[in-house]
Amino acid sequence: MHYVTSKTLLSSNNGMNLYRGCTHGCIYCDSRSECYNMNHDFEDIEVKQNSAELLKKELLKRPKSMVGTGSMTDPYIPIEKNLKYVRKSLEMIYRYGFGFTCITKSDLVLRDLDLLEKINERSKAVVQMTLTTADDDLCSILEPNVCVTSRRVEVLKTLSEAGIPTVVWLCPILPYINDSHENINGILDFCIESGVHGIICFGMGLTLREGNREYFYKKLDENFPGLREKYVEKFGDSYTVSSPNNRELMKIFKKRTDEKGILNDNDEIFRYLHNFPQDSVQTKLI
């Protein structure tokens, strides 16, 4: 871990990255790709030490809207437990009447349930959670340093019971690993049980490019001997790696989500995530 001083914190659409890098160890992580020009080891987390000062300054300048953590780094990585940068940000987001959404795989999000409830009562809070496999043992291989799927499902249920809407990212789906009917149906069962509002799915597959491809193949060699050669033969250097079962799995996804009234159109879900309720109660700035 190392600290940096940043000039800005929020992007033009209110994306917020308090940290850069990750220690969850997911074998498929696109954020390892060289195109992001990370000039430090991926597991050496970059911490924006002046984030609270920047956030306050930028919130005071902007109209009330949703603030979201970026998708490159899970905001609830282990160091957040002690640093509490996310929690401090949530306190400020609540104080100034903004909404909030994040993408995580961690049950640490429940530590901040009290603030999420307050934000949701005043404006809007949405928690997005990634589910890749219904099998906890496989989850421990694909995402070794974060809570397993069954625990994430407990988190989703707790959030739903607290009135916090949730969205699941059904990705990535790795060919010949978790691209089975059983797995997709298992994840959808969890989503239905948890009362999720929507499920984001870009198709059954993953993306590979320079940086993350090499790490992914290394992990395939460690955990799935012989599979790297199959990937190389089948997909070459393709950026988009689509499951041979994509068509039939997407039919299952569409049919079951339609039946249960779960949002499954990505554009519609992203509009929902970005939409700030204009009739929300605003408070005097402090």
Rank of each mutant, 00 (worst) to 15 (best):
S6L: 04
L10C: 07
Y19S: 01
R20V: 05
R20C: 06
H24T: 03
H24R: 04
R32A: 08
E34C: 15
Y36D: 01
M38E: 06
F42T: 00
K57Q: 15
L59H: 06
K61D: 11
T69F: 03
S71P: 09
T73L: 04
L83D: 11
K84C: 12
K84D: 11
S89H: 10
Y94E: 12
F100P: 10
D107V: 05
V109H: 02
L115C: 00
N120W: 00
L131I: 09
T132E: 08
D135L: 00
R151M: 13
R152W: 09
L156D: 11
I173E: 03
L174S: 01
S180Q: 02
E182L: 09
G195T: 09
E210G: 11
Y217C: 02
D221C: 09
N223E: 02
E229I: 07
V232S: 11
F235K: 02
G236P: 07
S238V: 02
S242N: 12
R247S: 14
E248P: 08
L249E: 09
I252L: 14
I252V: 10
F253T: 00
T257R: 12
D258G: 03
E259K: 15
E259N: 08
G261Q: 03
D265Y: 04
H274C: 14
Q282E: 15
L285N: 14
